[in-house]
Design a protein around this nucleic acid. Structure first.
Lengths: 234, 234
DNA sequence: AAAATAGTGTCTATTAGACAATATGTC
DNA sequence: GACATATTGTCTAATAGACACTATTTT
């Protein structure tokens, strides 16, 4: 019987940096169908033999394209949550992805919106199914990689300042980060060609102008440093 | 129609240390049913509404228990591979787990056996479906965590020597590791209570006796060091 | 000139890694 | 005693982090 089959879906935790204050936001979509129609939830699609996807990865890209019309700078699979009770329809699986968007990504219509990530993590915004959990797991993955990689730079605009980078790292980590340490990492990335100095400057309202950098990844995955930020109590 | 539904399964990449030489082995199971009946493959189970599992995690434990009758020291989900062509029956998903076994784990019968991991990775042993790929991914996960965590110690017997630990780390990494560095890590773990000195000694055929240690994890996950082994060309 | 902000230089602490020195056993 | 192996100690290199100092702009 078809009711004893599993329901498989792909859901996307797409994050963007808000400018002021520098905090992360998660992209949510208002559900069109039951269950939980009308509620804000992670954008996602069902995968089965009838859908046009040839792979999970493809389905994840389709979910972002069709539901949100945004293009991610980075995407990775975080995991799969599956059990008998997360969906009222029965046994279901959700393979969920972390996607990072540039800050200039816009969304159109009233069916799509960015929500403050902190509010979702604090359960001030309640999502259907186990989507709050999926968001939490994606954020954990991002924070884990932030301490040893260049991943947060994927959240930045094409041209960014050191403070932009610091803000992104801190938002991903949910914790303050040493300014000197971050500058040294950027310096290191510059030597390796992962970051380039645009030569241009940004003039803040007051004070010395800021140099503008560009992130130019040299590989599919982010650069891996061999030491972590924040060993523990910093 | 049921043919347009997805087929969901859980597969386990269970690894064990072989004693002589110190290399990793992967647990394989001879398939009972079509497709690929009779071939050696990863132990796994189908998940759907008819199976007794309440969650994916539960299904993974059942797979190890029913198919292999072994109890892992550690298990984590690595990811999910899903597409239209990995299984001849149609669109299918496999959520796969990395499991670490103690070296004393035995398997009974001729339907279960440990195979040299290197041979599977080198495709000298060809597995059905995309199981060679799953093994490769699980090994990548293990190697990645080995450079910054205490995870490989889960592969050791209850009492182990420094050289046992070194062998495990090298097997997980597929690369030689500095003896001094590993000793210092063990020393650090000892200070933190993650490793205890049993007081007993092991007398090799010749030379000074070796101290025997015990691994006593203080948390669900392995201990995380804040620097990596082998920054690159060591 | 004063204030504000950006960026640089210097010093310390930690730890991976190289290597020498010492300890403890067998033959 | 010779030899083999384990363990300890010493030194170097790299880098996170703390903090002082210098540079460049606006008012």
């Amino acid at each position: 019987m078809s009711t004893s089959e599993v329901l498989a879906s792909v859901d996307i935790v797409a994050l963007r940096m808000a400018a002021e204050p520098q905090q992360l936001q998660v992209l949510l979509h208002r559900r069109q169908r039951e269950p939980h129609a009308g509620q804000w939830a992670l954008p996602g699609v069902i995968v089965n033999g009838r859908t046009p996807d040839i792979s999970l990865e493809g389905a994840a890209e389709r979910a972002l394209r069709e539901k949100a019309r945004v293009v991610p700078c980075y995407m990775e699979q975080v995991g799969t949550e599956g059990n008998a009770f997360r969906d009222p329809r029965g046994w279901s699986l959700s393979t969920y992805y972390l996607a990072l968007l540039g800050p200039e990504q816009h969304v159109a219509g009233d069916q799509l919106a960015f929500f403050d990530l902190g509010s979702v993590l604090a359960r001030k915004v309640l999502l259907p199914f186990d989507h709050n959990l999926l968001v939490e797991r994606a954020r954990e993955r991002l924070a884990a990689k932030t301490v040893y990689s260049s991943l947060p730079l994927s959240l930045l605009a094409e041209k960014f300042t050191v403070l932009d980078a610091l803000g992104a790292v801190q938002a991903c980590l949910g914790q303050a980060v040493n300014n000197t340490s971050l500058r040294k990492r950027l310096e290191r990335l510059r030597e390796l060609g992962w970051v380039k100095d645009t030569g241009e400057k940004n003039q803040p309202r007051l004070g010395r102008p800021q140099q503008l950098y560009r992130y130019t990844p040299q590989a599919e995955r982010a650069f891996t440093f061999d030491r972590n930020l924040l060993p523990e109590g910093a």
